[in-house]
């Protein structure tokens, strides 16, 4: 496989369930080794999109290619190199973690040792011979991650992978995903916990009512959204610096703190002035968060829609 060939390609993909349009006209490519977040509220079409990529459902319109093949054509070869973690993953509670993972490993043509190595990797080796019925939510989720990583997949799709995980495990999961993407595996994860994606993913695809409303790196989305940058200054004394123009909407927060927001292109000029002013004792810069970006893109979508 050539490195520049997209691992997952969508062209005008739509999926209707009766009158409900779960996905409409979705087009994007995921290159090899990309770590991409699929963001949207519940029912925005994230899970449907993943099911389409896995070939579990067929698109009503459009073209979809995963690892160069049509996933709905039942191509077992492509599925061997795909991993999926469904939202709130469940397993037969009567079986042990090891039994389940070894079964899945054999389905992918992997030896049982591969399953055991993954149990070790997700920290379940001690619980491997216990029944899944006795596992905590976090342990089940880790078993789910382990099965998604079987067979050194070229792409992993993770549906809300961090819900129900405690912060330490979540951190470990993101480290694992970064490592995977570094090794050339395409990682697509859906989430609505936006704040934790900051700095973890290189690209964000925002979905709303089945449509892709924004797609790009965080920096690109920030530039597109032109959301104001928030600046917080700690001022010495009560003097109001004359360069604080009213169109930056400065307001006092108390304790000598002043907050203002400025358009991105005015940011550097403002910073130079603030740095040169001896009245400014400290300064904090807050770029718009992913949450704000998300809200912005959803609003602009609503503005366009009739």
């Amino acid at each position: 496989m050539k490195a520049d060939l997209p691992v997952i390609e969508l062209e005008g993909v739509a999926k209707r369930y009766g009158a409900v349009e779960a996905v409409r006209d979705a087009s994007f490519d995921l290159p090899q080794g990309a770590c991409v977040a699929l963001v949207g509220h519940n029912g925005a079409g994230k899970t449907t999109l993943m099911k389409l990529m896995l070939g579990l459902i067929r698109p009503s319109a459009g073209r979809l290619r995963v690892l160069g093949e049509d996933p709905a054509a039942g191509a077992a070869q492509a599925r061997r190199r795909l991993g999926w973690l469904p939202e709130s993953v469940t397993f037969n509670p009567a079986l042990t973690g090891q039994e389940v993972l070894r079964f899945f490993a054999r389905l992918k043509g992997e030896p049982a040792a591969a399953a055991d190595a993954l149990l070790e990797r997700v920290g379940l080796i001690e619980a491997a011979r216990r029944r899944i019925g006795g596992y905590s939510k976090g342990m089940r989720q880790r078993l789910g991650v382990a099965q998604a990583l079987l067979g050194s997949p070229r792409a992993v799709l993770l549906d809300e992978p961090t819900t129900g995980l405690d912060p330490e495990v979540r951190q470990g999961l993101y480290d694992m995903l970064t490592e995977l993407a570094g090794g050339g595996t395409t990682v697509l994860l859906s989430s609505h916990a936006l704040e934790e994606l900051e700095g973890r993913v290189e690209r964000v695809v925002i979905m709303d009512h089945g449509r892709v409303v924004a797609d790009g790196s965080l920096a690109e989305l920030r530039r597109l959204a032109r959301l104001p940058v928030r600046l917080r200054l700690a001022l010495v004394g009560d003097a109001w610096p004359d360069w604080l123009r009213p169109d930056f909407a400065p307001h006092r927060l108390g304790n000598g703190l002043v907050e203002l927001s400025c358009p991105p292109e005015a940011k550097m000029a403002l910073l130079r002035q603030a740095a040169a002013d001896p009245h400014v004792a400290d300064l904090d810069l807050e770029p718009p968060t992913l949450d704000e970006l998300y809200v912005h893109f959803l609003r602009s979508r609503d503005g366009v829609a009739p």
Partner: peptide
Amino acid sequence: ERGTLLLLLSYPLA
């Protein structure tokens, strides 16, 4: 209904 079927079908299994 238990939610294990979809995961099974996402494997290389017709």
